[in-house]
Design a protein around this nucleic acid. Structure first.
Length: 929
RNA sequence: CGGCUCGAAGCUCAGUCCGGUUGUGAGCAAUCGGUUGAUAACCGAUAGGUCGUUGGUUCAAAUCCAACCGAGCCGACCA
């Protein structure tokens, strides 16, 4: 007994290797390396062997460009689902995929090839496109992995893999078996200079000078509208800016909601919409006119007018697409030359008539105009527009002709104006095949999350036209059909298609282009006419067909069950992948490919507006990762409600970084105070624990329940709220604050400290596990720092969620402490007032006198000597009174140098002059044990 | 234009289906203060909302209905 004890060294302060700062941008890549080195995904597969499956089938992103906040969100939400189901004890495999074919890549590749003056034949494009797609699969794979998404990254599915391509063809053959595939016509953008169809993306709009003409169509059925018109010379006036489409006119469209007039002008009677009559009169120079009849547009339905120069009728139809913006309200309709014309023409059963060849010349059988070019490109071109106008004039059908400037589509390559021209296309029939009805019916058996998805999907199918699966393109899977060179018959045969598919499986779909026809066909294949001279179809499949067939190529070969448990994508996929997958699933397997569909909202900026590079309001995942870490993006995905549009902005990310630090520090506090605690030997039995520690366990048990429930319901926001609220309020502000005195001052092996540590241990284990799907990196880092944890499992991701524990449940305690903390609020307010009055600084400088009614007083007394620790003051006195009131005074005695409480017995033990009696005892216990 | 969704404190989120102490809702941020033994941490107090607007139904509306305003997705390739 000589050296005075340094009191400071006898305080058990937190000690941990778990750093205060996450330093995420540096540490996350290290953790990813570690997971890769230990092969975490395979470990998980082994750990879950024989466990019930949970299959989320990944929708493939397009292998083009870098990832953006939307694709990051997509993968992270999927990771939430996969990881949480895994933590529930399922084997939840994740096989990522990529959509590789299609126009955007083809366009990019064409640009590059052109720059290098390389040839643009199909195989050149296909080779370059494959290389391009491969490059972006690799880039995106790196980016997705960086987000902490766990999966079978070394063996993803890609739609351009030979086996996948083969399965696409096999899926198509199933539609053929059902008789659901037919050839039809549809107008597409067409460049007569490049002699090719163009996609919307290849069309640019710029000003163009067209002819604007008014034409009269004789209306022999006029008397059916109004007997008073019986003996009159009645015509319907139409207006158009594309005179060359008149030879293809098959009808005139009226709006059923508009009023139309019969107008007498001299000896003529004209029909035009009431709302445009004045404009028409002005244009046509009518000095006087008389309205002799007014009719609803509906009455014209299915009557006939006469084509002005072709010997046929022109059917009158009704459509909402007719507007009063310009013209006459009676719209010239040529189903082969316009999309809306096509739609209404199909509805009325008109032929999709196209009398124009690929270079823009009227075909031979077009009376008067054969050999004219619809749009003259050179000086010597016989101009179809002019010819039509001249002819109309010569037969007296032209009422007016003038020049007209407007925005018109042009080919982005050659800059020439584009026309609309019906070309042969392959379709999947939806109505006749019964697929529409089957799709609508199947919707009710699918679990939609959110629920309105059901309605949205059904609406999508209720009115869905036949699916146009043809693309006049190079980069994709060919529609494996042949034509007879002799009789023109189509060879549409499932057996032949499957034969081709087997070939694709070995050689990829390139075989279609590299091989002779005879090598693509089963030996001895002949057309029905006996001819062996066959040629291949040039069209490829719509890429929605590719991705829609993903289940078959991805899950089936891996022995995974049909249907998948869930598909999860953005709301845009109702028209996209959800849709095509359902159609293909129904056609191939007679059942939907998914039991459930989760759809989420769109990422928008801080003001709720869409993000665009031109507006400069985008949030780049790469930047966020660099600045704050991928964990912050993950946190964002959970913190905002992903089932609506989700706002993201610098402020929101700052708030989330704050929240992250709070959660991190809460875990760190637990870890720091578990120093010297071995759960195997130091655990205190529940019934021996101090009351507030049992409360803490009851409380974290409730949080567990809330999290489990929220994970189950895919309510990620609630998981985040539960964990965050638990960290800030329950733990940091209440439990930890109260616990400090006990943890720091009691002897390391004392019941008091071990009891607290038992609770802290359980709490931090639960935080790590329950947050692991969300905070994939940090939860694992916490896990590593929990005593004994890594011996149990090498990674938190290999563990399972804790259960809601009936032993820990204690509703009475929860209510009791709720009540206590209510009183605490009043005490805090009083302390604050005293602080403002400069009476005290720290709470421990105070003693409080609480006035309370008998009930409350008895309640407070039940906490005994611990009450002052609950309020973190040096003394509490109770007195009777009606209303709850708190008075604050300076605490009695002196400040103990060790525990900082004010007591009257500081120095009572001469061995420790600065310490209070309680501390002196604790030190003795420490030194002797 | 058609289908679907969303508008509440500066921010995120409960509450809206099934109207009734829901406007003293939570946390964060802000402001002011405390602490310096979770320390680029921690604790407390204060102040913040005509629940998009306007009408209606009702004794009573953030909640039900209608219209309007604003925002977003889809309608042949952006999650």
């Amino acid at each position: 007994m000589s050296e005075p004890v340094d009191l400071k060294t006898t305080v058990n302060l937190p000690k941990t290797d778990f750093p205060l700062k996450g330093n995420l941008s540096q540490n996350e890549p290290l953790r990813l390396q570690k997971w890769e080195a230990m092969n975490l995904y395979e470990m998980l597969r082994e750990a879950r062997q024989g466990k019930p499956l949970f299959v989320l089938h990944d929708g493939p992103p397009y292998a083009n460009g870098n990832i953006h906040i939307g694709t990051a969100l997509n993968k992270i939400l999927k990771d939430f689902v996969i990881k949480s189901r895994s933590m529930m004890g399922h084997w939840a495999p994740y096989i990522p995929g990529w959509d590789c074919h299609g126009l955007p890549i083809e366009i990019k590749v064409e640009e590059e090839l052109k720059k290098n003056k390389q040839e643009l034949d199909r195989m050149a494009i296909r080779k370059a496109a494959r290389a391009y797609a491969n490059k972006f699969v690799d880039l995106q794979r790196q980016d997705f992995k960086r987000l902490g998404v766990l999966g079978e990254w070394d063996n993803p599915y890609i739609t351009m893999a030979p086996a996948y391509q083969a399965n696409i063809v096999r899926a198509l053959s199933k539609f053929v078996e059902r008789g659901a595939v037919y050839k039809g016509s549809r107008p597409v953008h067409w460049c007569i200079s490049c002699v090719t169809s163009l996609a919307e993306a290849e069309v640019e709009y710029s000003d163009h000078s067209s002819y604007s003409i008014y034409v009269k169509f004789a209306f022999p059925d006029a008397a059916k509208v109004d007997p008073a018109l019986a003996d009159k010379r009645v015509s319907i006036i139409i207006w158009t800016t594309t005179p060359w489409t008149l030879p293809a006119n098959l009808g005139i469209s009226f709006n059923p909601k508009f009023e139309y007039n019969a107008v007498a002008v001299g000896d003529d009677v004209f029909i035009a919409a009431n709302g445009l009559l004045e404009d028409v009169a002005k244009k046509l120079g009518w000095e006087t006119y008389e309205i002799i009849g007014t009719y609803s547009g509906e009455v014209f339905d299915r009557l006939n007018a006469r084509h002005p120069f072709v010997d046929r009728d022109s059917l009158l139809m009704l459509g909402d697409h007719v507007t009063l913006e310009a013209g006459t309200g009676a719209v010239h309709t040529a189903p082969g030359h316009g999309y809306e014309d096509f739609l209404i023409g199909r509805e009325y059963g008109l032929e999709i008539y196209n009398p124009v060849d690929g270079r823009g010349y009227f075909m031979k059988d077009v009376e008067h105009f054969a050999g004219n070019r619809v749009v003259a490109l050179g000086k010597n071109d016989p101009d179809g527009n002019k010819a039509v106008i001249a002819h109309l004039e010569s037969i007296g059908a032209l009422l007016k002709s003038e020049k007209f400037n407007h925005s018109y589509p042009h080919c982005w390559r050659c800059r020439n104006p584009v026309i609309f021209r019906a070309t042969p296309q392959w379709f999947i029939s939806m109505e006749k095949s019964g697929l529409n009805a089957a799709a609508v019916e199947s919707c009710d058996n699918i679990h939609w999350h959110p629920g309105w998805g059901n309605e949205r999907m059904k609406n999508m199918f209720r009115d869905r036209p036949d699916w146009n699966i043809s693309r006049q393109r190079a980069w994709g899977v060919p529609i494996t059909v042949f034509y007879c060179d002799d009789c023109g018959e189509t060879l549409l045969d499932p057996a032949v298609m499957n034969y081709v598919a087997d070939l694709f499986e070995k050689e990829s779909a390139d075989a279609w282009y590299e091989r002779e026809v005879k090598d693509l066909l089963p030996p001895g294949t002949k057309c029905g006419c006996g001819s062996e001279k066959l040629s291949k179809e040039n069209d490829i499949l719509d890429v929605w067909f590719d991705s829609g067939a993903s289940w078959i190529s991805t899950m089936e070969p891996r022995g995974l069950p049909y249907p998948a448990d869930v598909y999860l994508e953005g709301g845009d996929q109702f028209r996209g992948w959800f849709n095509s997958s359902l159609v293909i699933g129904l056609a191939v397997k007679n059942a939907p490919p998914y039991k459930g569909v989760i759809s989420y909202g769109w990422a928008v900026d801080g003001e709720g507006r869409k993000m665009s590079k031109s507006l400069g309001n985008t949030v780049e995942p790469e930047k966020v990762i660099k600045q704050s870490g991928a964990e912050i993006i993950r946190l964002w995905c959970a913190a905002v409600n992903c089932y609506e549009d989700m706002r993201i902005s610098p402020e929101i990310l700052t708030r989330l970084s704050d929240a992250y630090r709070k959660i991190r520090n809460t875990a760190r506090y637990c870890l720091g105070n578990l120093d010297g605690f071995d759960p195997a030997t130091d655990n205190v039995a529940l019934n021996e624990m101090l009351e507030i520690d049992r409360w803490a366990l009851a409380s974290v048990n409730e949080m567990t329940k809330r999290c489990l429930d929220a994970w189950q319901r895919y309510d990620f926001t609630d998981v985040y709220q539960a964990i965050y609220h638990n960290a800030t309020v329950t733990l940091s502000a209440l439990y930890f604050d109260i616990l400090k005195d006990r943890l720091y001052t009691t002897a390391p092996k004392s019941l008091e400290r071990r009891s607290a540590q038992t609770a802290l241990y359980e709490i931090v284990v639960r935080i790590a596990k329950l947050s692991s799907p969300l905070l994939a990196f940090t939860s694992d880092e916490i896990w590593e720092n929990i005593p004994g944890a890594t011996a149990e499992a090498a990674s938190v991701h290999l563990t399972t969620f804790p259960a809601y524990d009936e032993h820990l449940r204690n509703d009475e305690l929860l209510a009791r402490y709720d009540k206590l903390f209510g009183v605490r609020d009043v005490v805090m307010k009083a302390l604050e007032e005293a602080r403002n009055a400069k009476l005290i600084g720290a709470g421990l400088e105070a003693k409080v006198t609480i006035t309370a009614n008998a009930d409350t007083r008895a309640f407070l007394e039940s906490f005994g000597a611990d009450l002052r620790f609950m309020f973190i003051v040096s003394g509490v006195a109770l007195q009777d009174g009606a209303d709850l009131k708190v008075e604050v005074a300076k605490a009695d005695g002196e400040k103990c140098e060790r525990c900082w409480n004010y007591t009257t017995d500081v120095g009572v033990n001469a061995a420790y002059p600065g310490a209070c009696g309680r501390c002196a005892q604790n030190i003795d216990t420490m030194l002797t044990s």
